[in-house]
Design a protein around this nucleic acid. Structure first.
Lengths: 337, 337
DNA sequence: TTGTACGCGTTATCAG
DNA sequence: CTGATAACGCGTACAA
């Protein structure tokens, strides 16, 4: 049987409340009793019961991280693992714990979160799900439940979020290839339902605009968010004819890597015939041939910041919405030349 | 204010006990009151408070997953992410939640786990940390705290574990290259402190033995567990001279990928001059040149099984230790030829 | 400075 | 079938 507060009270010859006060470093308590109680606590390996504790104090020491359902993301995106580590590190520094909530069932995600928050287990949440159900967010807002979203929400309401500046990043990589003389730059992987891809594509257009250019409409390739491969026919269509692209900005590394493979099959060389860049700095991009030029988005930093923001939201429930942009960095490798 | 069981009771004109019984599908309760209470529960969006619930019932609905400290593993090993998903999927099916415990501080890991278990938050744990502190495990065993370890523990005591049969896997890949005519096979990445690498290396020796061969002692390269790259000097030394290896079995894909790059720099071709195989089926191995032959260890399956075993341990505390081996699969790609 | 009594939201026991 | 009542382990006014 684990020792309770009563046990050590008895062993120390004091009342439970005294022990409780020692536990919370109450100022008005004699140094010597504090010493004695502490000694006994160590001796009996006492650990306060968090359940009972937060039941009365209403202070939750666990936060939830909601991962996207496997259905809506490329299966094993290391991105989330990095974010997770960022959150986790921040949390454990502040003596918080991280609860994982995978939307195994795709739609149950929202329901599960609402259950979590009502059940009193968690005191806040970080949503990694890229396409937030409005209903869920509304419910969270109405109940004044602290949460922060990873990624730009569509309507800029009173919600906390952290993200990269994807427009700027999209612009930067596009300018990078334009600066190297490429003039027919394609954008691969736009899915208007997902702000990430939309923003990166907007940056792509912005870069052209600034350079006084305008990309061919046919050079922007739309793809469903979760898919990582352009179908062979579409790829062949895109890269045939006189105006075929001499560069491709892909909305993520996975698409870029798949494409490099498929380009080789078409007899096109990277980077000589086509320059390729991606986003997210996947590990795989370091080992491809050629190595992939990409954008480091600092997923771990995103996680850390998300936690900081959540902490703020939990401690100051009335405070206004906080936002944060995490710097990105262009990683130059061999796929642009 | 969230609705409590009392609120529902009052609204339904019954006692809290009755509501509680409805909640737990107690048999002896009239159908009509059950209906009415349920209706009110829905209407008031009632969710039982898990804290209070498990405080009295002693049933914990959260399990902890202890990740290795970043210090002792290659920083962003996707392996753990896959395991995590396996655990998470299993858990959410059984209405359990997963709590992440990252040993941010390297040695604090054990302490943190003991705190978690004593604090009553979690009812069981899965240890992903490859090198378990004996002290921690001992403490867990003594307190009869349910836990399962991912990976063969050294001394086969009464502890639950799941793992691959790494000896068999090591043997299989070695036989694979031997069958293709390679005769000077090196093993890269042995760290005797880690059972994974030791077992894979044992399999490597076993394959030779079965073939009536015996590998050169100099062809087994030891490396500290966390490192992913053989130093250029050692690599040059290994691959020079008349008896230089014509194949390399690497203890994981990361090492294999780094090595393929470095071999190219030495002017050696893969697979013509040196066949290379790895373990774990990293995503990166699909995009390397040539693509990497490797072993799929089914990390997600490991996670699922770990959860199943933990569930068993939590439900039947007296039950004997359970073990489980997860099947692996050789993935043939271009790096062997 | 310390002890007493009550409540946090539920479940379980015991009557009725 | 249902309703009091007592825990579960702890924090906290209130009293001493």
């Amino acid at each position: 049987m684990k020792a309770t507060i009563k046990d050590i009270a008895q062993a120390a010859g004091v009342s439970p409340s005294t022990v409780s006060r020692v536990l919370s470093n109450h100022p008005r308590i004699s140094a010597e009793t504090a010493q004695r109680v502490r000694a006994i606590m160590r001796e009996m390996r006492y650990q306060p019961n968090q359940l009972a504790r937060s039941l009365v104090s209403r202070k939750r020491t666990i936060i939830a991280v909601v991962l996207p359902s496997t259905a809506e993301t490329s299966l094993s995106d290391p991105f989330f693992y990095d974010v997770l580590r960022g959150i986790s590190v921040g949390a454990s520094q502040e003596e918080y714990h991280v609860l994982l909530s995978t939307g195994a069932a795709p739609k149950a995600e929202g329901a599960k979160l609402e259950e979590l928050m009502h059940s009193g287990i968690v005191g806040g949440a970080i949503l990694l799900t890229s396409k937030v159900q409005d209903a869920t967010v509304q419910a969270l807002l109405e109940d004044r439940f602290p949460f922060v979203v990873l990624g730009h929400p569509d309507q800029d309401t009173q919600i906390h979020w952290v993200d990269n500046d994807n427009i700027a990043a999209g612009c930067a990589v596009t300018e990078h290839v334009l600066a190297r003389g490429r003039r027919r730059v394609a954008f691969i992987g736009l899915d208007a339902h997902y702000r990430v891809t939309a923003d990166r594509c907007a940056g792509y257009h912005l870069a052209h605009e600034r350079a006084g250019l305008s990309p061919a409409r046919a050079h922007v390739l739309e793809m469903p968010y979760a898919s990582t491969r352009v179908s062979p026919e579409r790829l062949r269509a895109l890269f045939s004819g006189k105006d075929r692209p001499d560069a491709a900005v892909c909305t993520n590394d996975l698409i870029a890597l798949e494409m490099m493979r498929d380009l080789a099959a078409l007899g096109l060389r990277v980077p000589e015939d086509v320059a390729v860049v991606g986003f997210n700095n996947l590990q795989a991009g370091r080992y491809s041939a050629p190595p992939l030029t990409t954008v480091e988005i600092d997923a771990e930093g995103l996680g850390r910041s998300a936690f900081r923001l959540l902490l703020g939201a939990m401690e100051h429930p009335k405070g206004g919405a906080a936002r944060q942009l995490i710097p990105f960095q262009l990683i130059e490798r061999g796929s642009v030349g």
